[in-house]
């Protein structure tokens, strides 16, 4: 893995975006969003995590194998979360 050397300029821009998003997510937590706080917070988190992954961790220039590892881990995380939570969300449906 010896992709191109990322210029420092990119790092600074990504960092600025991350800080901005952090401020946004904290600000949003003061709004009256009712139950949507966690959803909004996690969505902003996904954007931030993608920025870190793509630029700081050089995923943008990484080998296919690295992408495979990332996608596999997310896929399996999805399995764990979706199937477990689906049990809890459907538990009380049949009783009445």
């Amino acid at each position: 893995m010896s992709g191109p050397i990322t210029p420092t300029r990119t790092y600074y821009r990504v960092f600025a975006a991350l800080i901005a998003l952090t401020l946004v997510t904290v600000y949003v937590s003061f709004l009256e969003l009712g139950p949507w706080h966690t959803t909004v917070g996690v969505l902003i988190g996904v954007v931030k995590a993608s920025l870190v992954g793509l630029f700081f961790m050089h995923l943008l220039h990484s080998s296919k194998a690295s992408w495979l590892a990332v996608l596999a881990s997310l896929f399996w995380l999805g399995i764990l979360m979706v199937l477990t939570i689906s049990d809890y969300l459907t538990r009380h449906i049949l009783e009445y």
Binding site: W76, S86, T90
Partner: peptide, 21 residues
């Protein structure tokens, strides 16, 4: 990885979940 809860068919998981698994 998609079948684990077949160890839990009588363990109090939801009926729908049991069907899927």
């Amino acid at each position: 990885f998609l079948v684990w809860a077949h160890h839990m068919f009588v363990a109090g998981q939801s009926v729908y979940s049991a069907l899927i698994f």
